[in-house]
Nucleic acid binder design. Structure first.
Length: 283
DNA sequence: GCCATATGGAAAG
DNA sequence: TTTCCCTATGGCA
C-alpha cells in the first residue's frame, strides 16, 4: 500500500536482492502468464521508480548491458491500493491465492539453497511488459518527483495556473508524482495551508517550501520504511498504540490537533478522505 | 478471529 | 460516476 517512498524503497531492495541475476518468471495466478513468459530466463539489469510506478529492466542473459545501455524490455508495475511485494530467500513457498508474479533467481552453480532469492507480487493495478518507448510514455504522464531530485518548476507552474484546490492538485500525479493521501494531508498541515485554497492563490515560495519539506520527509521514509511526519517535539500525549504518533492529522478525524487541540476535520475530496485542522490551517 | 477500512488508479458504464 | 483489484492492517470481541 505504497506512496512514492515505498515504491522507491522497493526498487532499491529489488535491485539489491535480484539485480544482475537471471530470473525465472511465472504467474501462478495465470493472469500475467504471457508477460511472465517474456521475462522468464532473462536478467534483471535495472530497478527504478518514478512517482508510484516501478520499472524493472530485463535483458537477455548473455547480453552485455552496461549502465549506459537501455534494457530492451521493461516490467511496469503499479501496486495501486492493494498491491504488495513479498521477498524471501531459500526455497520459495507453495503459491497461495492470487499470486500475479513470482520471480526466482536462477544462478547456475549455486549450491547454497539460501542463496536462492525470490519475490512475489500480488494485487497490482498495473503489471505489464513494455518497451523503452513504453516507459517513456508512462514517464511523460508524470509530474516531477521529489525523490528523484526533479526540477519543481513545472509543479509550481501547474498549481499556480488553476483554481483547483491545492489538496486535489497534490494528489494529481501529472502535477507532482509520488505523493499520496498521507503526504497530502501532512504536508498541508505542516505548511499550515488550508486544503481548499485554490492553487493560483498559493504563493510560489510556499509551494517550493512544501516541495522541499516533502522531499526531506519522503527521503527519510525511504530509509525508515515508514512515514513519520511529526516533529519529535510534537510526538507526545496519549494516542493510539503503534503508529498513532506518526502523523498530525491523517486519519485523526475528531481527535484533538497536536498543536492547538481543535478537533481534526475531515471531508471527502475526489473520492479520497481529507484531513486538516480547521484552526491551524485557517482559510 | 472477525470486520471495516484503505498509502491508488484504470477500466467500465 | 461506479466498479474492480482482492491484500494488509488495525480495532474490537
Amino acid at each position: 500500500m505504497p506512496e512514492g517512498n515505498a515504491v522507491h524503497r522497493t526498487a532499491g531492495i529489488l535491485q539489491r536482492e535480484l539485480g544482475g541475476r537471471v530470473l525465472s518468471a511465472s504467474s501462478p495466478q495465470g493472469r500475467f502468464a504471457a508477460g511472465a513468459e517474456l521475462l522468464d530466463g532473462t536478467r534483471l539489469v535495472r530497478s527504478e521508480a518514478r512517482g508510484k510506478h516501478l520499472f524493472l529492466g530485463f535483458a537477455p542473459p548473455g547480453a552485455a548491458v552496461g549502465p549506459e545501455d537501455e534494457p530492451p524490455r521493461w516490467l511496469h508495475v503499479h501496486l495501486g491500493l492493494y498491491g504488495t511485494w513479498t521477498l524471501g530467500t531459500g526455497e520459495p513457498p507453495e503459491p497461495v491465492g492470487a499470486l500475479r508474479l513470482r520471480l526466482v533467481s536462477l544462478e547456475d552453480g549455486l549450491d547454497d539453497p539460501d542463496e536462492v532469492r525470490w519475490a512475489d507480487m500480488r494485487g497490482p493495478t498495473a503489471c505489464e511488459v513494455v518497451t523503452p518507448e513504453g516507459v517513456d510514455l508512462i514517464a511523460a504522464r508524470l509530474g516531477p518527483d521529489p525523490l528523484l531530485g526533479d526540477d519543481p518548476a513545472p509543479y509550481v507552474e501547474r498549481v499556480r495556473g488553476t483554481r483547483t484546490t491545492i489538496a486535489a492538485l497534490l494528489m494529481h500525479q501529472d502535477v507532482i508524482s509520488g505523493l499520496g493521501n498521507i503526504y497530502r494531508a501532512e504536508a498541508l498541515f505542516r505548511a499550515r495551508l488550508h486544503p481548499y485554497a485554490p492553487g493560483r492563490d498559493v504563493p510560489a515560495p510556499v509551494l517550493l517550501a512544501l516541495w522541499d519539506d516533502v522531499s526531506v520527509l519522503m527521503r527519510e521514509a525511504v530509509e525508515r520504511g515508514r512515514i513519520v511526519t511529526t516533529d519529535p517535539a510534537d510526538r507526545h500525549g496519549p494516542g493510539p498504540k503503534g503508529r498513532g504518533l506518526d502523523h498530525y492529522v491523517y486519519r485523526r478525524a475528531g481527535l484533538p490537533c497536536r498543536i492547538c487541540g481543535t478537533p481534526v476535520a475531515t471531508a471527502v475530496l475526489e473520492a479520497r478522505n481529507l484531513f486538516w485542522c480547521p484552526r491551524c490551517q485557517a482559510a
